[in-house]
């Protein structure tokens, strides 16, 4: 089986100290949840997947995505979408420009504008294109961040406690939206979280570090 994201005997060391060991296969559309106390290396694992492990850390083992070995690929070539707890919209750009930033290269100007408009409409944010991202509510910003990631057509999604800053009602709603979209796009998801409810909503396997 070459589909999905494979972590084969991945071990990460901080200096000489072993930090974590993980062995997992995430098929398309499935969510692998990773939980653990702070300092257990959850974020380091995501950095390793992204390919920008900080100096001082070493990793062994194999990472493959859709059968392709990821090791040695720079972050921009891995096509792994990343969502943090903050939406991290670029504050100097409008909402539409933030989405345009996520679009893969190609297509003419009109086509690109149309895709951005469609993405906004897709999450009920029609007409929000020219807005300053700082004027969006937390839920709106989270939706823009998700669409920005999806427009880049990621081959997998990495979620770093993405719902922890949203209040309860919004959290359920955003959680459902993100998981539905990942399932619809048939891409594997790795979710790093503190929140058991995230794991339950994700419905996939759980690894505790």
């Amino acid at each position: 089986m070459t589909e999905g994201l494979h972590l084969d005997r991945v071990r990460i060391f901080e200096g000489a100290r072993p930090l974590l060991e993980i062995d997992a296969r995430v098929p398309p559309g499935e969510v692998l949840s990773v939980m653990g106390p702070s300092g257990s290396g959850k974020s380091t694992l995501l950095s390793h997947l992204m390919g920008d492990l900080a100096p001082g850390f070493r990793a062994h083992g194999e990472l493959t995505l859709e059968g392709q070995d990821l090791s040695g690929l720079p972050p921009e070539a891995r096509r792994l979408g990343l969502l943090y707890q903050d939406p991290l919209l670029f504050p100097h750009l409008s909402v539409a420009e933030n989405l345009a930033f996520g679009l893969r290269p190609g297509g003419d100007r009109t086509e690109r504008r149309n895709r951005v408009e469609a993405a906004l409409a897709d999450v009920s944010l029609e007409g929000y294109g020219p807005r300053d991202p700082a004027t969006l509510s937390g839920g709106q910003a989270a939706r823009v961040a998700l669409m920005r990631t999806l427009l880049s057509e990621p081959r997998a999604l990495l979620l770093d406690e993405p719902f922890s800053k949203l209040d309860q009602g919004l959290r359920d709603q955003t959680r459902r939206l993100v998981f539905d979209r990942a399932r619809a796009a048939r891409i594997p998801v790795v979710l790093v979280t503190h929140d058991r409810a995230d794991v339950v909503a994700a419905g996939g396997p759980l690894i505790e570090l």
Binding site: P75, R78, G102, R148, S152
Partner: peptide, 25 residues
């Protein structure tokens, strides 16, 4: 750091991505 992580995960190269997202700030 996080801005660059997002930028590169969206498929932008190091230099182009930095110029587009970090330089203006």
């Amino acid at each position: 750091r996080r801005r660059m992580a997002i930028t590169r995960s969206l498929g932008h190269g190091r230099v182009a991505g930095w110029m587009k997202t970090v330089f203006p700030g």
